[in-house]
Amino acid sequence: MTDKAEGSLLYLDDVSVSFDGFRAINRLSLVLEPGEMRAIIGPNGAGKTTMMDIITGKTRPDTGDVLFDGSVDLTRLDEAAIANLGIGRKFQKPTVFESHSVEDNIALALKARRGAFAALFHRRSSVEQGRIDALLETIRLSEKRDLLAARLSHGQKQWLEIGMLLAQEPRLLLVDEPAAGMTDAETAETAILLKEIARTQSVVVVEHDMTFVRALDVKVTVLHEGSVLAEGSLDAVSSNPKVIEVYLGR
């Protein structure tokens, strides 16, 4: 069984999880290659967020394998351990540390030793400062670095969160609805940013916005009732009769 996981970055096989009898994820299988970018679409309640919860250790699956890097069993690790393995997550609702400055938000996310005592005696090095400056440049918040994150606009918070994700230097980024609440211009820019990130890292994007998914131009997985309904290019899946039925049939 694990042989198939060989060479994959993320490997989900026959994963199921129920909440009070409701099967949120039903025998879901999904394989992501290193360096791959994947879009995940599906109607509300299809299990997209639950899938993210399982990968990041927030929810334990009832059955099935969840492997990272072909061999690391994610179901046995907690959120912090999984994050430190190199899996970063951006939430649907932008969650930044509102009472910290924009710069401190990035500094906290920056890849470093996460122990309490390491943090107590931590002094920011010039290398780290350089990294922070570069990241702020990437997410276009250099001028707002001293501003409290609470004062940012919705779109800027989304970008700050992406910046925090990059600061962790993850090997796999899980991005939940990055374009939600953004203007069209911001959405387009976000797609460009994500494609740039995908050149060096693997990315899984959950999204509702079809224009956005089209702009990403990657392989699409359609989830429905907790399992994979279809997989392929956006054109292929959107002409799939089963997908059409799920989206338009009721």
């Binding site: 990041t56 959120e79 912090a80 994050a83 930044v96 540390f97 509102e98 122990g115």
Partner: peptide, 11 residues
Amino acid sequence: AESRTRFIGYR
């Protein structure tokens, strides 16, 4: 934001 802090990798 406790859970956010966990997902960044802090115990």
